[in-house]
Write a protein that binds this DNA or RNA. Structure first.
Lengths: 213, 213
DNA sequence: TAGATTGTTAATCGATTAACAATC
DNA sequence: TAGATTGTTAATCGATTAACAATC
């Protein structure tokens, strides 16, 4: 594992893709993978693959053989912090929020959603996939009781910033924002990551436009 | 509008963020915005904002005033192709798929979902928010009848590639892939965009790790 | 061994940043 | 006018790509 001096955001974005591919490969029974082969699957170059993997992995690949898939999966998970499970809460149990609450996939990325919050009386008190839904009024109380530091925000745009502020005040240091608005925090120690379907749509749309010229 | 010779993916990814901010600003009643102010909201530099906006906009900003918000919104929408509504289908009406079907937000990005597909007999024939759910058996037939070119893939990983192949064979040229696996197409004219919650989670996790050192 | 694959070092390419004259 | 803001041109920075010796 090299000194992770300066890694570009693009590079970090690639690791989950490696992870997906490697996990798929593992299922097929493969034990090793070479960078040229992996590069093809990643739609990138073998040089880039090697550089990327060198950053996260302590051991090196063997000529003619490649790298061990299990080891790589573990290295990437460790590097991204997906290995040690982290508890998180989810605010906004609407369509999307509920789908996310039910979604098992977060576990494979080290995130464990322990509770949901909403202001809709008809669902407060319910459990969704074993996870309790609390009133947003209890946000501060539960954050401190549960001791969570990560929140997933799936509220309407209109209240996203307000809720984000409350989350931060209550001790949250990382927010994954699905709400369709850009939020911010005065506290620069807080990490906010915007997740937006539109950016994928923008890329798709743009590439299709280029194609049609 | 300049010759859009070579625009980086990062740059394209920024436009939906501009769009979100500008739409928010418009709601507050603002009519103009300067690049220094917009830069602050974007967490970037005024130079970059100016360059980005110059690429998509034919008219220029006025010193002391900035740029017209309505104009910018329109320019970005046009540039990204969000202006002319495009029909799309959605395959896989599970938790997420159904949430996406119900989601109104796609409209503001120029995408109009006209139908869903699933293999679950208990929901085939239903309508979700006015959109019919067909059997996947009818995929090819409906694609040709509806004349759609874009598909949103929300199936389990295990069948994603198989469905993607069928979509492409039936005439689809753009796929937005939410399935948790990387898909590809032999047809290099087909544009596939992977949407992965994990990449956001990876960035969040990595930034938090950096913070804690 | 021969050759595929490796890791590293150097070259290129491109995006971001800085500087500055122009302008409302 | 004065000054904020503009667009453009040049400088810097960093990531990607290419080249190559090392090795299983």
């Amino acid at each position: 594992m090299k000194e992770q001096s300066n890694i570009s955001l693009n590079q970090i974005r690639r690791y989950p893709v490696y992870l997906k591919i490697l996990r798929d490969l593992k299922k097929t029974g493969e034990t090793h993978i070479s960078s040229p082969v992996l590069a093809k699957m990643m739609n990138s170059s073998e040089e880039q693959v090697r550089k990327d993997l060198q950053v996260v992995s302590k051991d090196s690949g063997k000529p003619k053989v490649g790298r061990n898939i299990d080891g790589l999966i573990n290295d990437i998970e460790t590097f991204l912090g997906f290995n040690n499970d982290t508890d998180a809460i989810l605010v906004g149990c609407g369509q999307f929020g509920t789908a996310l609450l039910r979604y098992d996939g977060f576990k494979s990325y080290g995130l464990n959603i322990v509770a949901g919050f909403d202001n809709n009386q008809s669902i407060i008190g319910n459990t969704i996939k074993g996870k309790p839904v609390y009133s947003v009024d209890e946000l501060e109380k539960q954050i401190s009781e549960l001791g969570v530091k990560i929140a997933i925000l799936v509220t309407p745009a209109s209240v996203a910033q307000e809720i984000a502020d409350r989350l931060v005040d209550a001790g949250v240091i990382g927010i994954l924002n699905f709400a369709p608005t850009v939020i911010s925090s005065k506290n620069e120690n807080v990490v906010i990551e915007e997740i937006d379907i539109a950016s994928g749509l923008a890329l798709l749309s743009h590439k299709l436009n280029l194609r049609n010229r």
